[in-house]
Amino acid sequence: MNSRILLAGFLIPMAMIIAAVPSNKTKQYKLTANQLLQEAVSYEPYIHPDNVADMLVQQDPSLQLIDVRTPDEFDKFSLPGAINIPLSELLADQYVDLLDQGVKMNVFYSNGTLKSNEAWMITRQLGYSNNYVLQGGLNYWAETIINPVPPASTSPDEEIAKYNFRKGASMALGGDVDTKSAETAVPAVPVITAKQAKKRVAGGC
Protein backbone atom coordinates (compact mmCIF):
# COMPACT_ATOMS: atom_id res chain seq x y z
CA MET A 1 0.00 0.00 0.00
CA ASN A 2 2.80 2.32 0.95
CA SER A 3 4.52 2.21 -2.45
CA ARG A 4 1.21 2.99 -4.13
CA ILE A 5 0.66 6.09 -2.03
CA LEU A 6 4.25 7.06 -2.77
CA LEU A 7 3.62 6.63 -6.50
CA ALA A 8 0.39 8.63 -6.35
CA GLY A 9 2.09 11.23 -4.19
CA PHE A 10 4.72 11.67 -6.90
CA LEU A 11 2.74 11.36 -10.12
CA ILE A 12 -0.32 13.43 -9.17
CA PRO A 13 1.64 16.54 -8.11
CA MET A 14 3.81 16.21 -11.22
CA ALA A 15 0.66 16.05 -13.35
CA MET A 16 -0.69 19.11 -11.53
CA ILE A 17 2.50 21.01 -12.32
CA ILE A 18 2.36 20.04 -15.96
CA ALA A 19 -1.32 21.04 -16.09
CA ALA A 20 -0.52 24.43 -14.61
CA VAL A 21 2.49 25.46 -16.69
CA PRO A 22 2.01 26.77 -20.23
CA SER A 23 3.03 24.30 -22.89
CA ASN A 24 6.32 24.82 -24.62
CA LYS A 25 5.79 26.54 -27.95
CA THR A 26 9.45 26.75 -28.87
CA LYS A 27 9.96 25.83 -32.47
CA GLN A 28 13.00 23.71 -32.62
CA TYR A 29 12.17 21.48 -35.49
CA LYS A 30 14.27 21.13 -38.54
CA LEU A 31 12.70 20.29 -41.86
CA THR A 32 14.07 17.29 -43.64
CA ALA A 33 15.22 17.73 -47.22
CA ASN A 34 11.98 16.12 -48.35
CA GLN A 35 9.74 18.43 -46.32
CA LEU A 36 11.70 21.45 -47.49
CA LEU A 37 11.15 20.38 -51.07
CA GLN A 38 7.43 20.05 -50.37
CA GLU A 39 7.39 23.53 -48.85
CA ALA A 40 9.26 25.00 -51.78
CA VAL A 41 6.95 23.36 -54.28
CA SER A 42 3.63 23.95 -52.57
CA TYR A 43 4.15 27.25 -50.84
CA GLU A 44 4.31 30.45 -52.83
CA PRO A 45 6.49 32.97 -51.00
CA TYR A 46 6.34 35.71 -53.61
CA ILE A 47 4.76 39.12 -53.13
CA HIS A 48 4.28 41.15 -56.29
CA PRO A 49 5.94 44.61 -56.42
CA ASP A 50 2.49 46.18 -57.01
CA ASN A 51 1.29 44.89 -53.63
CA VAL A 52 4.43 46.06 -51.88
CA ALA A 53 4.19 49.48 -53.53
CA ASP A 54 0.55 49.74 -52.52
CA MET A 55 1.41 48.94 -48.91
CA LEU A 56 4.27 51.44 -48.99
CA VAL A 57 2.09 54.20 -50.41
CA GLN A 58 -0.57 53.53 -47.80
CA GLN A 59 2.16 53.34 -45.16
CA ASP A 60 0.86 49.98 -44.00
CA PRO A 61 2.56 49.40 -40.65
CA SER A 62 2.42 45.62 -41.06
CA LEU A 63 4.94 45.69 -43.90
CA GLN A 64 8.58 45.18 -43.04
CA LEU A 65 10.97 45.22 -45.97
CA ILE A 66 14.23 43.43 -45.33
CA ASP A 67 17.19 44.05 -47.60
CA VAL A 68 19.41 40.97 -47.62
CA ARG A 69 22.14 42.53 -49.76
CA THR A 70 25.43 43.83 -48.39
CA PRO A 71 25.45 47.08 -46.38
CA ASP A 72 27.29 48.81 -49.25
CA GLU A 73 24.53 48.02 -51.70
CA PHE A 74 21.96 48.93 -49.09
CA ASP A 75 23.54 52.38 -48.63
CA LYS A 76 23.51 53.01 -52.36
CA PHE A 77 19.86 52.22 -52.81
CA SER A 78 17.14 50.73 -50.71
CA LEU A 79 13.40 50.68 -50.65
CA PRO A 80 11.64 53.11 -48.27
CA GLY A 81 11.47 51.84 -44.71
CA ALA A 82 13.63 48.80 -45.43
CA ILE A 83 16.10 47.49 -42.89
CA ASN A 84 19.34 45.81 -43.83
CA ILE A 85 19.98 42.24 -42.71
CA PRO A 86 22.82 40.98 -44.91
CA LEU A 87 22.34 37.31 -45.76
CA SER A 88 25.52 36.42 -43.89
CA GLU A 89 24.06 37.99 -40.73
CA LEU A 90 20.66 36.32 -41.03
CA LEU A 91 21.18 34.00 -38.09
CA ALA A 92 22.58 36.65 -35.75
CA ASP A 93 20.81 36.73 -32.38
CA GLN A 94 19.78 40.37 -32.74
CA TYR A 95 17.52 39.59 -35.72
CA VAL A 96 15.66 36.60 -34.27
CA ASP A 97 12.83 38.75 -32.90
CA LEU A 98 12.45 40.45 -36.26
CA LEU A 99 12.34 37.26 -38.29
CA ASP A 100 10.41 35.00 -35.92
CA GLN A 101 7.20 36.86 -35.18
CA GLY A 102 3.53 36.70 -36.02
CA VAL A 103 2.61 40.36 -36.47
CA LYS A 104 4.47 41.89 -39.38
CA MET A 105 4.83 40.73 -42.93
CA ASN A 106 8.52 40.45 -43.66
CA VAL A 107 9.42 40.82 -47.32
CA PHE A 108 12.96 39.88 -48.25
CA TYR A 109 14.47 41.50 -51.30
CA SER A 110 17.77 41.52 -53.11
CA ASN A 111 18.78 42.54 -56.62
CA GLY A 112 17.34 39.41 -58.13
CA THR A 113 15.60 36.77 -56.08
CA LEU A 114 18.51 34.42 -55.38
CA LYS A 115 19.61 35.89 -52.06
CA SER A 116 16.10 36.66 -50.89
CA ASN A 117 15.02 33.12 -51.74
CA GLU A 118 17.93 31.76 -49.74
CA ALA A 119 16.92 33.91 -46.79
CA TRP A 120 13.35 32.66 -47.12
CA MET A 121 14.50 29.02 -47.28
CA ILE A 122 16.57 29.42 -44.13
CA THR A 123 13.73 31.04 -42.20
CA ARG A 124 11.36 28.28 -43.37
CA GLN A 125 13.86 25.72 -42.20
CA LEU A 126 13.78 27.38 -38.78
CA GLY A 127 9.99 27.22 -38.80
CA TYR A 128 9.40 30.97 -38.94
CA SER A 129 6.28 32.18 -40.68
CA ASN A 130 5.25 35.56 -42.11
CA ASN A 131 8.33 35.78 -44.29
CA TYR A 132 7.96 36.50 -48.01
CA VAL A 133 10.05 37.36 -51.01
CA LEU A 134 9.70 40.37 -53.28
CA GLN A 135 8.89 38.87 -56.65
CA GLY A 136 11.67 39.48 -59.15
CA GLY A 137 13.71 41.45 -56.65
CA LEU A 138 14.85 45.02 -57.24
CA ASN A 139 15.30 44.36 -60.96
CA TYR A 140 11.63 43.67 -61.37
CA TRP A 141 10.81 46.49 -58.96
CA ALA A 142 12.69 48.88 -61.22
CA GLU A 143 10.86 47.53 -64.21
CA THR A 144 7.38 47.69 -62.74
CA ILE A 145 7.38 50.54 -60.23
CA ILE A 146 10.27 52.86 -60.97
CA ASN A 147 10.16 52.81 -64.76
CA PRO A 148 6.79 51.37 -65.67
CA VAL A 149 6.35 50.77 -69.36
CA PRO A 150 3.34 52.67 -70.71
CA PRO A 151 0.84 50.23 -72.14
CA ALA A 152 -0.36 50.60 -75.71
CA SER A 153 -3.37 52.85 -76.07
CA THR A 154 -5.39 49.82 -77.14
CA SER A 155 -4.68 48.02 -73.87
CA PRO A 156 -7.56 47.08 -71.60
CA ASP A 157 -8.53 49.63 -68.97
CA GLU A 158 -7.07 47.59 -66.16
CA GLU A 159 -3.64 47.64 -67.81
CA ILE A 160 -3.84 51.40 -68.02
CA ALA A 161 -5.06 51.65 -64.44
CA LYS A 162 -2.18 49.50 -63.34
CA TYR A 163 0.24 51.72 -65.24
CA ASN A 164 -1.24 54.81 -63.62
CA PHE A 165 -0.95 53.24 -60.21
CA ARG A 166 2.67 52.35 -60.84
CA LYS A 167 3.41 55.81 -62.14
CA GLY A 168 1.78 57.30 -59.05
CA ALA A 169 3.57 54.92 -56.73
CA SER A 170 6.83 55.71 -58.44
CA MET A 171 6.25 59.40 -57.79
CA ALA A 172 5.01 58.87 -54.24
CA LEU A 173 8.02 56.74 -53.40
CA GLY A 174 10.28 59.02 -55.40
CA GLY A 175 11.95 60.43 -52.31
CA ASP A 176 14.32 57.52 -52.16
CA VAL A 177 14.25 56.76 -55.82
CA ASP A 178 16.60 59.45 -57.03
CA THR A 179 19.31 59.35 -59.66
CA LYS A 180 21.18 56.71 -57.68
CA SER A 181 18.46 54.25 -58.45
CA ALA A 182 19.27 54.58 -62.11
CA GLU A 183 22.79 53.36 -61.40
CA THR A 184 21.62 50.26 -59.68
CA ALA A 185 18.92 49.70 -62.20
CA VAL A 186 21.27 49.90 -65.15
CA PRO A 187 22.97 46.53 -64.70
CA ALA A 188 19.54 45.04 -64.50
CA VAL A 189 18.59 46.23 -67.95
CA PRO A 190 19.38 42.99 -69.78
CA VAL A 191 17.23 41.13 -67.29
CA ILE A 192 14.43 43.62 -67.78
CA THR A 193 14.40 43.33 -71.54
CA ALA A 194 14.61 39.58 -71.31
CA LYS A 195 11.61 39.48 -69.03
CA GLN A 196 9.59 41.96 -71.03
CA ALA A 197 7.76 39.45 -73.16
CA LYS A 198 7.11 37.19 -70.22
CA LYS A 199 5.56 40.00 -68.23
CA ARG A 200 3.01 40.75 -70.90
CA VAL A 201 1.88 37.18 -70.95
CA ALA A 202 1.80 36.86 -67.17
CA GLY A 203 -0.37 39.93 -66.79
CA GLY A 204 -1.13 41.58 -63.50
CA CYS A 205 -0.67 40.67 -59.89
Binding site: R4, A8, L11, I12, A15, M16, I18, A19, A20, V21, S23
Partner: peptide
Protein backbone atom coordinates in the same frame (compact mmCIF):
# COMPACT_ATOMS: atom_id res chain seq x y z
CA UNK B 1 -8.04 21.14 -23.47
CA UNK B 2 -4.39 21.82 -22.92
CA UNK B 3 -2.19 18.71 -23.13
CA UNK B 4 -1.05 19.18 -19.55
CA UNK B 5 -4.59 19.40 -18.19
CA UNK B 6 -5.56 16.29 -20.17
CA UNK B 7 -2.55 14.54 -18.62
CA UNK B 8 -3.73 15.46 -15.12
CA UNK B 9 -7.21 14.10 -15.89
CA UNK B 10 -5.75 10.85 -17.23
CA UNK B 11 -3.53 10.46 -14.17
CA UNK B 12 -6.51 10.94 -11.86
CA UNK B 13 -8.62 8.52 -13.89
CA UNK B 14 -5.76 6.00 -13.81
CA UNK B 15 -5.50 6.17 -10.04
CA UNK B 16 -9.26 5.84 -9.74
CA UNK B 17 -9.02 2.72 -11.93
CA UNK B 18 -6.24 1.32 -9.76
Amino acid sequence: LKDGLMALIIVLVAFAMF
